[in-house]
Design a protein around this nucleic acid. Structure first.
Lengths: 339, 339
DNA sequence: CTGAAAGCGCTTACAG
DNA sequence: CTGAAAGCGCTTACAG
């Protein structure tokens, strides 16, 4: 019951192992009839080239790595990642490249994981998410010479290609929308301030607030946990109605969810006295009452674009950064005209 | 800038490549002083054995596979999986075995993925989740002779080891608790009925209902989507108060969440007129108001146990099925005495 | 259009 | 305690 090898196929088809290899890997070298016979035999015996042997010969792992540096509990409730992963794989599996996944606590551990994978030649490249404004990983990756794509805005300090989405534009659209509804007191509950995407969105928020001359536009930083999100909301709402924001924009769907719950606990009616916008969209947004108005975009497509870019980088066609679709506002029940 | 190979290390340390290999892989063959020198050189040059070369020599991939057969959107909002994955990896990374992940639509595609990985010798074994009561994957895996562990109750029809948790006991505890609060009309919103774990829980629910002589104990099947969960809740609540259940037990946290929202939309106060219990616990449960009473257990530990069992199976120590901790009820604000 | 052979970087009996 | 060599299963110039 041993797995068949290329020699078994060659023998059975009456050719050399070299020919079997050529037949499988394209290249017009092989006569069509010979190829057909080889393929038939291979198929019949259920043969597929050993990834190890092939990898050794061509010095490629046919795999890429994704290491997520977040606590498991935060990751779990964040729908973004599974969708992103599904998007990656849609692209990878058709090209027979595998995805190695690791979940770690911090950047140090993340780098260590990539370093190990790379040294062991388990991966040909890596996808980097959740970039910090100052992120030790990017220069480390560059000195290791690991092909890498950065998921987030392109960085002036690096030649690595980025796959990104215009978060600033999405935030601007959100503020325009709220101002259009008559809101003048708008707060932002932001993600972790070390993340570059947080910084970009905060800057866009503040610029929009200035442009519209909003009298009150506070930004509260959190670490994406439930507690931090709830605490921020509580802080914003635990004052007299005149001093409260009439709208809060959250950096993701999870915190917006807890925003709804906190408002309910404090008996601030949504959307009558408070409008809420979620910075990400997922099924979660339709699981609360009222359902959340949210910034929506195709995360799977974002993952697919990231995979394509990395594959191109690995193949040596130096791809530039690619901009993915901008999120657009999906209006549901959590927003209304300002009281 | 080429990556160093074992020959580079051997040369630099003044020994044969064979010795380098022995030095690294234990086995008391090597003199302590020689080993120390070899390790020092390897470390200095940043050398790690190529996974491909090593894999080819020992006929092991040093990797296991996990293929999740669910839609990306359902997966994303389900905190279980990321926690489970984090648990798997805690165990894997210390032993230098990698995790290959794939997300597919159905069992057919899942099997195809495993078959490909196995034929290419990319994995040494596989973890199977979300088992169906009648599941084509288990016999297919057995005929392929892929080492596999089943995450779910052991199956009479298979010799594969299972890692499981006593769902029946957890459900029983839940019903005892609700009955203790005076509830007599208790409904269950179940997951997909093809899943064996759904069947087990439903059976336990019905047995407990019978034991307590409950006059009303309907079970509604869903497919785990938001819509189905909301629809089931709506069906249960859209009748006069006398005919409604006073408590609903959901199969996971996500549907319980949407249960809270639906109750709110229909103006059924929770927990005053309706108690709600979530079948899984995660941060989501504390993100709603009132926070959800939930069946809680250590999912990371569950993942770790699964990894350990698979690793043991691969190494040939025929591990039996292992029972992981039983979930226990964490009481929060969504349950109260029956009206 | 096809074959024979070297080489990828490890591991592991086999000798000494 | 250590070395020399075969072998794992592919790919790919090199000949013909």
């Amino acid at each position: 019951m041993k797995r068949p090898t290329i020699s078994d196929i060659a023998e059975r088809a009456g050719v050399s192992t070299g020919l079997v290899s050529y037949a499988l890997n394209g290249s017009g070298r092989v006569a069509e009839s010979t190829r057909a016979k080889i393929l038939a035999v291979a198929d019949e015996m259920g043969w597929r080239p050993s990834a190890a042997a092939r990898g050794l010969a061509v010095a490629k792992a046919q795999a890429i790595g994704l290491v997520l540096a977040r606590s498991a509990s935060t990751l779990g409730v964040e729908p973004f990642f599974m969708k992103f992963i599904a998007g990656l794989e849609g692209e990878l599996s058709t090209r027979r490249v595998a995805l190695l996944l690791q979940v770690v606590e911090d950047h140090e551990a993340a780098l260590e994981a990539v370093r190990a994978w790379w040294a062991e030649q388990r991966i040909d490249g890596v996808i980097v998410t959740d970039l910090w404004t100052t992120d030790a990983r990017v220069s480390a990756l560059e000195t290791l010479r690991v092909p890498a794509v950065l998921v987030g805005p392109p960085r002036p300090d690096s030649g690595l290609p980025a796959v990104w989405s215009d978060d600033a534009a999405a935030i601007t659209e959100t503020i325009e929308y709220l101002v259009g509804l008559g809101h003048r007191r708008i707060a932002r509950v932001a993600g972790h301030s070390v993340f570059e995407h947080t910084r970009v969105r905060t800057a866009a928020f503040q610029a929009a607030a200035r442009r519209h001359g909003l009298p009150y536009a506070p930004v509260l930083d959190t670490d994406y946990t439930v507690e931090a999100g709830a605490k921020a909301t509580e802080e914003l709402l635990s004052v007299s109605q005149a001093l409260r924001p009439t709208a809060i924009v959250y950096d993701n769907d999870v915190m917006a969810l807890s925003g709804i719950a906190t408002a309910r606990r404090l008996e601030v009616p949504v959307p009558q006295q408070l409008s809420i916008v979620a910075g990400d969209d997922s099924q979660l947004c339709e699981m609360v009452f009222p359902p959340l108005t949210a910034l929506s975009r195709d995360i799977q497509d974002y993952g697919a674009a990231s995979a394509r870019t990395l594959l191109a980088l690995i193949e040596g066609t130096g791809p530039g950064s690619v901009q993915s679709a901008t999120a657009h506002l999906v209006v549901r029940g959590s927003t209304a005209a300002a009281a």
